[in-house]
């Protein structure tokens, strides 16, 4: 049986789908058999981030309604054959699927794949309930902002209430320079508040937007990027390896502080 991991956050726009795409791809690069499941019915995006949007024919809803077999709906990645996508329906709402159906679908996938990564929609309503229905583990994505942390906290409470005991935290879009001048919460600040084990830290990186534009997850690009390395490290940790966290502290010499003072006061 493969591991079923839901990627969730509560708040929208913190990087759930980017995280799913990159971790999925990074695990595939480690020769694991991976399926990424888009559970965001009605607002699917995972196909775009993986660059697979033109190859989607059937969706999870078609499988559930018996219009196609499960293997027909799975889209195989051409770059990495051991990564497949189960797309969500775009012309349905989140209420068109229920948790029992999701459990059925996911347990069939878990028999074949090493990892089933479920990309949860934002919010804590039906779509979220569907996404977590079959999961035994969770990855909670947040950013160092007050609203994202508050929503993550709410989601962590709901995961515990739904008996998902194993949760890891990813802090996305951290800006070390802002942390250094006390204008952003640090990794320690956020982990202390949320009090679940830290799985990874991803620095704010413009390359993420470039990779989304191309439909090519960062971990695939030949040139190493900060965020890409961070996602690779997360995949390795998930896979049981012990990997040090990236050192994101800004070298804080007096000169830069003085410079900072003058640029700030203008």
């Amino acid at each position: 049986m493969g591991r079923v991991i839901v990627i969730t956050s509560g708040k929208g726009g913190v990087g759930k789908t980017t995280t799913t795409a990159n971790i999925g791809m990074a695990l595939a690069q480690r020769n694991r058999k991976v399926v990424v499941v888009d559970a965001d019915f009605g607002l699917r995006n995972l196909d775009l981030l993986l660059g697979l949007e033109n190859r989607v024919v059937y969706t999870a809803v078609d499988v559930l309604s018996g219009q196609c077999r499960l293997e027909q709906a799975l889209v195989k990645d051409k770059r990495r054959g051991n990564l497949v996508l189960l797309p969500a329906a775009q012309n349905r709402t989140k209420d068109s699927v229920n948790p029992a159906q999701m459990r059925q679908l996911i347990s069939a996938l878990a028999k074949v794949f090493d990892y089933v990564l479920v990309d949860s929609p934002a919010g804590i309503e039906m779509g979220f309930q569907n996404a977590i229905a079959a999961a035994t583990e969770a990855i909670v994505v947040t950013t160092p902002e007050i609203s994202a942390v508050r929503d993550a906290d709410r989601v962590i409470g709901l995961l515990e209430a739904n008996n998902i005991k194993k949760s890891g935290l990813i802090i996305n879009r951290i800006r070390p320079k802002m942390v250094a001048v006390n204008d952003m919460m640090s990794v320690d600040d956020v982990t202390e508040i949320l009090a679940i084990p830290l799985l990874g830290v991803v620095p704010d990186d413009e390359k993420v937007i470039v990779s989304t534009n191309k439909g090519e997850p960062l971990v695939l690009s030949g040139t190493p990027t900060q965020a890409g390395t961070a996602f690779e490290n997360i995949a390795r940790r998930l896979d049981g390896e012990k990997v040090e966290f990236l050192d994101l502290t800004v070298k804080d010499d007096l000169l830069s502080k003085i410079k900072n003072f003058f640029t700030k006061s203008i």
Partner: peptide
């Protein structure tokens, strides 16, 4: 009074 302390 930093915004970091305030947000915490």
């Amino acid at each position: 009074r930093s915004s970091r302390q305030e947000v915490k």
